[in-house]
Amino acid sequence: MTYLMSLFLIGLIVGMVAVASNPAPYFAALGLVVSAGVGCGILAGHGGSFLSLILFLIYLGGMLVVFAYSAALAAEPYPEAWGGWSVIVYMLVYMTGVVVAGACMWGGWYEGFWVMESFKEFMVVRGDTSGAAFMYSFGGGMLVISAWVLLLTLFVVLELTRGLSRGTLRAV
């Protein structure tokens, strides 16, 4: 289990290096998919199965489909992969930085606990599953605020992409 979790942690860093090293948006989206999938593995390994499921369904299923569509919208004929010179220089610089930072921290590691047995307060169901239900009782104010923010964002998006004589896009 320790080896598998170490592999997941290294995969998270490598995925973020692949996003941050400035390739074409196709390949950056691929790196973000790898990083999100590995993040699901990390959360499941720590015992948060419901949070891992939320990350997998909402993040990978909702946002990255939209990002793939936008990458197709902003397409270019010869996309630059990780083999190009500027990208490979960025990747080497970032990986060197990560290795140097890890070497500076090298003496101070201690073994964290990987898998949780159960939470203290709930014994029947998993703790994160029942803790998410607090959003409907004690966290009702934040639930109302976030629903309001999502509704506001809908109108912001509609006004940004309206296009006719009113709004922000009058040129089209």
Partner: peptide
């Protein structure tokens, strides 16, 4: 959340 064992 998971390491502090708080469900809230």
């Amino acid at each position: 959340t998971l390491q502090l064992e708080t469900t809230c």
